[in-house]
Design a binder for these strands. Structure first.
Length: 165
DNA sequence: CATCAAAAACTCC
DNA sequence: GGAGTTTTTGATG
């Protein structure tokens, strides 16, 4: 039984992302779909003021990342997951823009060097791509690995940060 | 509720 | 190409 989320489109040069908010902050972010999202529940009238404020920040942060820069400010993130996942996501957010890491490096950074495969799993479970830069994580030998939103997006995001794969 | 088995966006030999 | 490590998730008793 999840709390209802309010979904709003975030317009960027790369398409219309869908941002979902809970009462506590940004809970989910999804890549633009080919077709428009059916029946947007949120009209401006029923969106609480604080969520509109968060959304403004989200959109700005999103554009920054898409332009290859680290956002100055983040909206509050309402990350739901296991302790392990939250630890991984936190480590991901410390990767500077334009740099890449590997699953092994993340595993070492959180003190569990052998848990590389589990790290991959946690990345796949990341509900907020782009702002939690799971796209900057490559496999140990430079392979691209995988990506929830599709590998095309991973390449696009890396390219916008000037990273060669 | 406890336990078992299988899978995963990996890495190393 | 195959084995190894960690965590999550779903089935089973």
């Amino acid at each position: 039984m999840n709390k209802p989320l309010i979904t709003i489109q975030a317009i960027t040069p790369d398409g219309e992302f869908a941002a979902s908010y809970s009462e506590n902050g940004l809970a989910e972010l999804s890549f633009p779909k080919a077709r428009r999202i059916a029946s947007l529940p949120a009209k401006n009238d029923i969106v609480p003021a604080r969520i509109r404020a968060w959304h403004r920040v989200t959109e700005t942060a999103l554009k920054s990342v898409l332009a290859g820069r680290a956002p100055k400010i983040f909206p509050p993130l309402d990350l739901v997951g296991t302790d392990f996942q939250k630890t991984v996501w936190n480590a991901l957010r410390e990767i500077p823009a334009g740099k890449t890491s590997s699953y092994g490096e993340i595993a070492r950074a959180i003190g569990k060097p052998k848990a590389v495969r589990a790290v991959g799993g946690a990345c796949g479970a990341n509900p907020i791509p782009v702002l939690v830069p799971c796209h900057r994580v490559l496999a140990a030998d430079g392979r691209i690995g995988g990506f929830s939103g599709g590998l095309a997006w991973k390449r696009t995001l890396l390219a916008s940060e000037g990273v060669e794969v």
